[in-house]
Nucleic acid binder design. Structure first.
Lengths: 261, 261
DNA sequence: CAGTGGTCTAGACCACACT
DNA sequence: GTGTGGTCTAGACCACTGC
């Protein structure tokens, strides 16, 4: 078997029947896609141990090195986590190390004050018909239902972030303000365990704005305070949009930190 | 030779004498470090073709696969660029594809208007004693000289970005407003060819602010317009700080786009 | 101790670019 | 055709974890 042979049409033993990978993609890319499908299908859930590299190699009828390269990429994309001596696990937002991976607001003097997770206050959780812009962002129709969660995050008692979070009504059926308030884990960790949704990557658009009276009220700032608006689109496996979030950040004692490489 | 053998103290043929890598790092990491040293020393300059994987493997007395893994990482960090069939090249900010890699401000409706590089207007280029904050950022003493470049970038004739750019005086000796104005290439491309400095990675801190009258004057906005302040630290090889830049961005028709993964 | 991921090697062949 | 990077394999051994 070689680089230009697809698993599905290999002369020998096709590893998988239902594959629709682009013709003649490298074997390890096809393996990656198969693993991705298992992740998406929930065969392995966040936190689970997946089969060893040799087991996967046997299952897919390829060498261990090829499986390795596929897993290498998936772990660089934070979909899997390798632990030497233990195995490879499905990544989760529940782990202490990578909690709040998507929250880029950092204190100006990192030495001082609590780095810890913010205090969270749920203001509202409503089930609504999707406004046009929300429907567009989440690839829904305007007749579809969505949840809108409004909340405030405070650091050291200072209300710092106001967020409107929009989620597809079907996928998040049963979401309530009470559940959100009671759960002490990060929101994305709850999404994993309660709704089987894992946020994989996101895209943020930032602007400086003067905000509405309502938002300024929640943040306890005057309406002429410049605020950072952070619009986040989050995606689950295979780039499906799953969350649209408009955040408004105070940046007087914290800043949005971004690494460019 | 194996994973726990350092090149420098290998029984057989040490590949390199002056190595001070941490003990027992993987071979490919040591190779990576050696390549990095050659890049830093200017043995290969931006745009240059470096030796083939087999040549490097011979030079370092390791297998081609090990060199490959080192180059893999360097090319993922954008220090090298592989071109199938041609060879591996030192990355440069001059290539069309990756020009303005660090500029994250994108038009709101990407379909419309000119995506192209902005019109640039140099306001000033002065040689000054380093203010305290600049000295700290660039790891200089306050007695050291620095250049301060002030400029405005406009898109479609609209002044959109004002920047103060601070550079170490020694490294950028001879920098003038005239040179900056005449050169049509990206600034970082000029830094490569004229000063032998390649910016490798950077870190940006963002805040929403109301700016000074002076800056608002350059951007032709009123002083109560919220603006995005982008503070950028740029680093050359081995994480040496080389540029400190304070940008002030209009975000009424453009936004700062960030990918989270 | 066995089982896992991590590193290294050597060799084969493919895809691409240039001449 | 020659030379480059890109893929795949098979086997060896190391480093870490947990029984």
């Amino acid at each position: 078997m070689n680089a230009s042979t697809n698993l599905e049409n290999a002369a020998g033993q096709p590893a998988n029947a239902g594959m629709v990978a682009p013709s003649f993609s490298p074997l390890y890319q096809q393996i990656k896609e198969l693993v991705l499908k298992s992740l998406q299908a929930g065969e392995w859930k966040p936190g689970d141990l997946i089969p060893s590299e040799f087991e996967l190699a046997a299952r897919f009828k390829v060498s261990q090195g090829t499986v390795r390269k596929a897993i290498d990429e998936l772990s660089k994309e934070h979909l899997l986590v390798r632990r030497q001596g233990k195995g490879t696990f499905v990544a989760t937002h529940a782990e202490q190390q990578v909690q709040f991976r998507f929250l880029k607001l950092k204190p100006d003097n990192s030495a001082a004050i609590s780095q810890g997770p913010a205090e969270r206050h749920i203001i509202d959780c409503s089930r609504l018909r999707a406004p046009a812009d929300v429907a567009r962002a989440l690839s829904l129709r305007t007749s579809d239902m969505v949840y809108r969660v409004r909340r405030v995050l405070s650091f050291d008692g200072v209300p710092t972030i106001f967020e409107d979070i929009w989620l597809p009504g079907n996928t998040f059926k049963g979401l309530t303000a009470e559940r959100l308030s009671k759960d002490t884990r990060p929101m994305y960790a709850m999404f994993e365990s309660d709704f089987g949704i894992r946020m994989v990557r996101a895209q943020e658009r930032l602007r400086a704005i003067l905000s509405s009276e309502e938002v300024c009220g929640f943040l306890k700032v005057s309406t002429n305070t410049p605020l950072l608006q952070v619009e986040r689109m989050s995606f689950t496996y295979h780039d499906s949009p799953m969350e649209w979030r408009i955040g408004t950040y105070r940046t007087d004692t914290r800043h949005y930190l971004n690494e460019l490489s």
